[in-house]
C-alpha cells in the first residue's frame, strides 16, 4: 500500500475546437482495495472535473466501463490497482465512436448489432394469458443463461484483430447472441434463417480464430466453444444445401 500511482490518460474532447488528442498524466496515492472506479472518480473530483469516462453499476454487471487498461480491454470497475504496475495507461476502446477522453458510444453499435442479428425470440405463437408456461429443462435454461450473461461491454470486439481491420465484421458478441437463440427451443428460426444472418464473411466465416475475444471477455463467456460450434453448424448446413440434403 501507499504506492504513488501514475496515470497516463488519453484526452480529447471532440466538442471543443481547441482540444487535440493527447495524453494527460495524473498522480494518485494508492489506497486499500482501490479499483479504477475509485481512482478515476477521485481524479475527476480532485484534479480535473472535465475528465470523461463511463461508470454505471461499478460492480462488473452493466458493461459500461470497458476501456484499454495497459493495452488490454477490460472493465475498469473490476480492475484493482493492486493488480497493476504503478504506471497505468488508459485509453478508450477502439472501433466504437469516441465521445470524449475514455468515453465511447457503445449504445449505437450494440443497438445496430441487435437489429442485425435480430436478437429476439422469433415465434408465430401468441402469448396466452391463461395458459401455464411451456416447460423447459432446467439444465437447458442454465445453458442459455450461460450465453445470456454477456454484458455488451465491447471488450471482445476491441480485442479482435478482424473487427479492428474490418468495420463490417459483427464480432464474437453477435455470434454468441445467435448461438444463444439457436439453443432456445422457443425461437422458431430455421437453420437457413440463421445462416442468412451469420453464415457470411461478416459473420462466422470472417472470424479468423484469433481468440482475443475469448481471452479478454470479462464475463468469461465460452466464446471459443460457441464460435467453433457455430462454424461447424453453419459449414455443415452449407454442405447439406450443396448436396440438397434435407
Amino acid at each position: 500500500m501507499g504506492r504513488k500511482l501514475k496515470f497516463n490518460i488519453f484526452r480529447y474532447n471532440p466538442q471543443d475546437p481547441d482540444s487535440v488528442p493527447h495524453t494527460d498524466t495524473f498522480q494518485l496515492e494508492e489506497t486499500e482495495s482501490m479499483t479504477l472506479f475509485i481512482a478515476l472518480t477521485q481524479i475527476r473530483e480532485e484534479q480535473d472535473p472535465s475528465l470523461q469516462f463511463d461508470f454505471c453499476c461499478r460492480a462488473g454487471i452493466c458493461g459500461a466501463c470497458a476501456m484499454i487498461i495497459n493495452g488490454r480491454p477490460n472493465l475498469a470497475c473490476k480492475t484493482l490497482t493492486d493488480d497493476l504496475p504503478a504506471e497505468i495507461t488508459l485509453m478508450p476502446l477502439p472501433i466504437f465512436k469516441l465521445i470524449g477522453d475514455l468515453s465511447v458510444d457503445t449504445g449505437t453499435w450494440f443497438r445496430e448489432m441487435n437489429e442485425n442479428v435480430e436478437s429476439w425470440v422469433h415465434t408465430s405463437k401468441t402469448f396466452d394469458l391463461e395458459a401455464e408456461e411451456e416447460r423447459m429443462d432446467n439444465s437447458l435454461a442454465e445453458e442459455i443463461y450461460e450465453l445470456e450473461r454477456c454484458v455488451e461491454c465491447g471488450c471482445c470486439v476491441a480485442a479482435c484483430g478482424t473487427a479492428n481491420m474490418r468495420e463490417d465484421f459483427v464480432g464474437a458478441v453477435a455470434m454468441n447472441r445467435i448461438a444463444r437463440f439457436m439453443m432456445d427451443p422457443r425461437d422458431q428460426r430455421t437453420g437457413s434463417e440463421y445462416f442468412e444472418v451469420i453464415g457470411t464473411d461478416e459473420g462466422i466465416f470472417g472470424c479468423m480464430g484469433l481468440l482475443g475475444c475469448e481471452d479478454v471477455c470479462p464475463k468469461q463467456l465460452p466464446l471459443q466453444d460457441q464460435l467453433g460450434i457455430l462454424r461447424l453448424k453453419m459449414g455443415w448446413s452449407a454442405i447439406k444445401h450443396l448436396f440438397r440434403i434435407k
Binding site: T108, D168, G199, T200, G235, S237
Partner: peptide, 21 residues
C-alpha cells in the same frame, strides 16, 4: 435518430464454401 445500416445480403453460401476450401 439512430441510423440503421442494414446489410442486405442475398442468401449466398459462397463464404461457407470458401472457408471450407
Amino acid at each position: 435518430t439512430i441510423d440503421i445500416t442494414m446489410y442486405v445480403r442475398a442468401p449466398s453460401r459462397i463464404s461457407a464454401y470458401l472457408d471450407w476450401l
